[in-house]
Computed example of a mutant assay.
Amino acid sequence: MSLFLRGLAAAALSLAVALPAPAHEHIKLTDLDGRNVTLHGLPEKVALGFYYEDYLAVAGAEGAAKLVSLSRAPWADWRPGQWAAYGAVFPALETLPDFGNADDNSFSVEALIASQPDVAILASWQTAAIGEAGVNQIKDAGIAVVAIDYNAQTLERHLLSTRILGAVTGQPERAEHLAALYEAKTKDTLERIAKAGPSGKKIYVELAQKGPAEVGNTYGKGMWAGVIDLVGGQNIAAGQIANWGPLSPEYVIAAQPDVIVLAGSEWRNKPEAVLLGFGETDAAAQPKLAAYAARPGWEALPAVQARAVYGIYHGGNRTLSDFVYARTIAKALYPEAFADVDPAAELRAYYQDWLPVVPDGTFVTKLQ
């Protein structure tokens, strides 16, 4: 059985534990940490740690009204354009209590408890950061802790996380539609690749945050490396970088990548970065992509010669809409197989169907 089909089977078997009950009944589920959780009725007050867009896609506008606190920095600081777009629709976000950021050890269990939620929905990387002691402290205050995990980049955990969000928010039908969409797009991507056969193309991804004068991180495992693995590209960082870190300029040139992907975001305090995402324009992104392509020694790289240099939104990976970015990279590797696929149009359709904001900005682009 293929990895994809095993993921489908595991997700189907686990679905029963994630289905919600009426508000007056207990909801029992197994979260993505493997923790058995019982909710005493449908939660009305939610502390949200991460996966903000995914939560809102499943919960709908009603889910925003249930929020009583946030881990604010990973949204407002990491994705300021995205934060501003949602703040325009939900002004109350700006005044929600902030319980800190597990990524920089400022996470405050006490602040989360003080917001008096019925449930804390946290990423598995956040529960790992605060440890069992932190999780138990929250639980001892009478607050259920539910861990979800899109960071794992597996079909199974994407689907289970979505269905668990459906259970906790009382939106099982939305969750099922979203899970089916993600499943179908992933299946279509893999079927096109299987039909096309190996591309044989080498690919290099760089976090384009520091500008071309300084080498940014690439990924040997997880994050964009996980996407490359999914779509069958030859990642030049594989075996060179354990998780993330920079490759030497000499190694990149020697590897002669056929495709280069520059991951950009809304880093407005980093003037040399490739800026992509909400509020960002292709007109501004093109000179930044060109500056990277003009690095010493890059002019002769196959990717630069073919103008196969792409910009991709760093904040879009490891989400319910990340099938768009997988298809962007797949199209770069197998252009004929994905000739009829327009990732930017698919992203717009996703937002139109599932989210309350319009994705005004550039999220995927190619060097002209």
Rank of each mutant, 00 (worst) to 15 (best):
F107P: 08
S108C: 08
I143T: 04
E94T: 09
Q153R: 01
A152H: 12
A141K: 00
V135S: 05
N136D: 14
D77G: 14
W75T: 10
A144S: 10
W78P: 02
A102K: 05
S161A: 09
L159Q: 07
H158P: 02
N136C: 02
W75Y: 13
T162P: 02
W83K: 03
N136Y: 05
Q116M: 05
Q153S: 00
I130F: 01
I148V: 09
P117I: 01
N105L: 13
L155K: 00
V145Y: 01
A85R: 12
L160P: 01
Q137S: 05
G142R: 02
V145F: 09
N105W: 05
V146R: 00
A102H: 12
D149A: 00
W125S: 11
E132H: 07
S108P: 13
I113D: 06
I130Q: 11
P74N: 13
I143A: 05
W75H: 14
S106N: 13
G100W: 00
W83V: 01
P117D: 12
A133H: 04
F107Q: 09
P80A: 10
V89I: 15
A85H: 10
N105A: 14
F107T: 10
Q153W: 00
A111G: 08
I143V: 14
S108G: 11
D98T: 05
V145A: 07
V89H: 09
N136F: 03
L93P: 01
V135Q: 03
A76V: 15
W125V: 08
W125H: 13
N105I: 03
W125R: 10
S106Y: 09
A133S: 06
A114K: 07
L112I: 09
F99S: 12
A114V: 02
D118Y: 00
N101L: 15
T95A: 14
Q82Y: 04
F99N: 12
V109E: 08
G81D: 04
R157Y: 04
I113F: 06
F90D: 12
E132T: 09
W83Q: 04
Y86K: 10
L122R: 14
A84L: 15
K139L: 06
P117T: 02
D149H: 00
F90P: 14
V146Q: 03
D103V: 11
L155H: 01
E110C: 02
G131Q: 06
N101P: 13
K139F: 06
E94W: 04
G100A: 11
N101M: 14
A85Y: 06
S161N: 05
F107M: 10
P74M: 10
T162A: 07
T127Y: 11
T162N: 08
G81N: 11
Y86G: 01
L160R: 09
I113N: 04
D140C: 03
F107N: 08
T127N: 07
G142H: 01
V119L: 06
E132P: 02
Y150R: 01
A102C: 07
I143N: 04
D98H: 01
I130P: 01
A133Y: 00
W78S: 14
A88P: 03
E94Q: 14
P117R: 06
W75C: 08
D140I: 05
K139D: 11
G100S: 13
V89T: 12
N151I: 00
P91I: 06
S108Q: 07
P80T: 13
G100I: 02
G100D: 15
V145L: 07
E132Y: 04
D140V: 06
I113V: 08
A133T: 05
Y86P: 08
